[in-house]
Amino acid sequence: MDVSFALTGKGYVLVAADTTAARSIVKMKGDEDKIKSLGPHLLMAYSGEPGDTVNFAEYIERNIRLYQIRNLYPLRPPSAASWIRRSLADSLRSRSPYSVNLLLGGYDTSTYTPHLYWIDYLGTMATVPFAAHGYGSYFALSLLDRYHDPEAPLEEGLATLKRCIDEVSKRLVVAPGKYKVKVVDKDGIREVEL
């Protein structure tokens, strides 16, 4: 039932994910952070099978960190995305595959460009201007088709994101109540209030 969105703008990527941790019909927690920082300029929103998600996200987080320690510089978004995708693709054909879907947003500090990747549990990767996972995608993608502008300033990007969240709240029966929104740009990662 997780819902996550992401969109690019002029020099930034916005990533949003709901904050509910549920088991069956019971809401266990209402302030879960499902967006991990994988480096100074890399964000990953994860969703999917409970248990798999955090385990996989932490595995990725530690290995991306290890790369940074070994090489004294972080992986750039395209390389990180390729490696993460490969981890999922290999996992798919292993004895116990991870069921984790990802939105990977990053800012490339050497080319000054924002990057966004849509990755699913099969290891399908797409480079996209905006993306969504979960039931939210059925409502948000059509809105983003209409309103997304890759050259929009942050305020406009946040307004577009709010449209998506509002639409999901209005039309989705099992809509989540709260979202955490993070932005990554040239200054790094920060959380923003909608």
Binding site: R85, R86, L88, A89, L92, D120, L122, G123, T124, M125
Partner: peptide
């Protein structure tokens, strides 16, 4: 075909 395999096989 399956997109994940398209990417994997390209590599």
């Amino acid at each position: 075909g399956l997109a994940t395999d398209v990417t994997t096989l390209r590599e």
